[in-house]
Every structure is written in structure tokens, then in C-alpha cells.
Simulated scan of single mutants.
Amino acid sequence: MWNAETVRRLHDWYATPEGEYALSQENSLFQRLVSQWPRRGKTLLDVGCGAGVFLEMLWHYGFDVTGFDTSPELIEAARERMGNRADFQLGKSDYLPFDDKEFDYVSLLSLLEYVENPEDVLAEAFRVASRGVIIGTMNSFSLYHATSLLRRTPPQPGHHVRRMNFWSLSRLIRRLCPSGRIAARSVLLGPSSTWRKKGFWGRANAVQTALPIGAYLGVCVDTQARLPLTPLLLRAKAKAYKVCSGLQPEASREGVAPHPLP
């Protein structure tokens, strides 16, 4: 479970070349996943906000953010990072002190693999979210995880409680939110020794693939039907076609030559 010590170790790791690269790719992954969500004036609750690294990212995306964590130390660290850009609440992640649908969105980033009861935590996220939930987790179905097992080293600073992958996570989501629409992508295809900006692996690890095989997995769940948005150009073409059709005789539009005028 996250505490001040594991968060400190994680922040130390983020200062390494591998950690800095991984964090930048996770940031790009989250940006892509939420790109279809309206953000201006929309509220988001970041459950397990820790010291506020991901919370700050979400704020930059345009959400009105609230950080939530079980640790007063971590809340204080996040408050120091965010200042007045975020609200904060302290409590248990499997018993959120909020009304149903109180937030537009909820994020669970690098949390579910560390909690004892991920189903209860996810159920609470769906309860308080009116529009959607975004989940980020280390992926057990990845080359990174396989090489970590061979080296007998933990996959990431801190200790995993359980292994998670797209299939186990999607089964959990379907049980809790059967009508939700799931979109998933993963990033960081290689082992951590390849997490560098340059060369072949630098390009390969930056690929955000729909295949759930990267070291970090992002899953976006829409709990509300999304209205399709028509691009402006298509709308203009449709309007032009309608105007032109209205100027033509009916018979001509059906492929029959119009009768000559008397």
C-alpha cells in the first residue's frame, strides 16, 4: 500500500532517466485517453492522489481537480505542490465521502494494484462519477513484467499487491458497470533498461498501442453515452449539398431529364 516512504522512493525513481521517460509516456497516454472528454468546467476526483504528480497532470489537461488520499502526509505534500489549484479530501478509497454522481470524472492512477480490495475501490469510483472513470496500472502481461520476474526485482518502486492486466481489469469493470464503454491503450513496450529517449527503443516505447502489452496500461470507461461530434468540414459539406439539391428540379436529382418548359 502507498505510504510516504513508497512515494518518496517513487519520486526518487522519477528523477532517474528511466523514470523521467516513463512518466512522460504515461502523461502522453492519459492525454490521449481523455482527449474525447469535455474538460473545461468539468470536475475530476483523483483517488489515491499521493503527492500530486498525476493530479497536476490532470489539472493541466483542463479539469477542476480534487485530490483524495488516505495519508495526511501525502495530502500535505500534494497541497504543497498544487497550492490553490486543487481541493483535497482525506478518507478511505473504498468508502468515498461523496454523494452519488458528485463528480463528472474519477481517476484511479497507479492505485488498484496496491489496494487490498480493488473491486470495492472501483465500485466507489463508478458511484461518484457521472460521466467516466480513467484507470492506470502497471501491466502484468508485458515484457517489462516478465523481465522483472526473471531478475527477481519488483516491477516498480513499492510492492505490488496483485498483478493486473487488461483482461482481469475489464472483467472487473463489466461486473460493476455493464453498460460502460471501454477504451484501452498501453505504452512502454520494452523492459525498463530500454526506457530512453533516443534510438529504436526510444521510438518503440513511445508507441501507444491498442494491444494491451505495454508496461503501463490505461483504461478509459465512459459511463454516459457520448454524443457524436460532427467535424465542422463535414457539416459544411452536408449543408452545401442540401442547398445545391434544393436548387435542382426534383426529376434531375433522380437522374431523369426534366421536362422542357413550355
Rank of each mutant, 00 (worst) to 15 (best):
L45R: 11
D46W: 07
V47S: 07
V47C: 06
V47N: 04
G50E: 03
A51G: 09
V53H: 04
F54M: 05
F54A: 05
L55V: 04
E56T: 01
E56G: 06
M57W: 14
M57Q: 12
L58E: 13
L58K: 08
L58Y: 14
L58T: 13
L58G: 09
W59Y: 15
W59F: 13
W59L: 05
H60E: 15
H60Y: 11
G62H: 10
G62M: 03
G62T: 00
F63P: 04
D64C: 00
D64G: 04
V65P: 08
V65E: 06
T66C: 00
T66E: 00
F68H: 06
F68W: 11
D69A: 01
T70A: 03
S71N: 13
S71F: 06
P72N: 09
E73G: 03
L74R: 01
L74T: 12
I75G: 00
E76A: 14
A77S: 01
A77N: 01
R79Q: 15
R79N: 15
E80M: 02
M82G: 03
M82L: 13
G83I: 05
N84C: 06
N84R: 12
R85H: 14
A86E: 10
A86N: 08
A86I: 09
D87Y: 09
D87Q: 11
F88A: 07
F88P: 00
Q89T: 15
Q89P: 00
L90Q: 14
K92I: 03
K92L: 11
K92C: 09
S93V: 10
S93G: 07
S93C: 11
Y95M: 03
Y95E: 13
L96P: 00
L96D: 09
L96A: 08
P97W: 13
P97M: 06
P97E: 15
F98P: 07
F98G: 01
D99F: 04
D100L: 02
D100I: 03
D100K: 12
D104R: 02
Y105E: 14
V106H: 10
S107M: 10
L108V: 10
L108G: 01
L108I: 06
L111I: 13
L111A: 01
L112T: 00
L112W: 05
E113L: 04
E113H: 11
E113F: 04
Y114D: 08
Y114G: 07
V115W: 09
E116N: 13
N117K: 12
P118M: 08
P118I: 00
E119I: 03
E119H: 03
E119G: 03
E119W: 11
D120Q: 08
D120T: 00
D120K: 06
D120M: 00
V121C: 05
V121W: 14
L122C: 05
A123M: 00
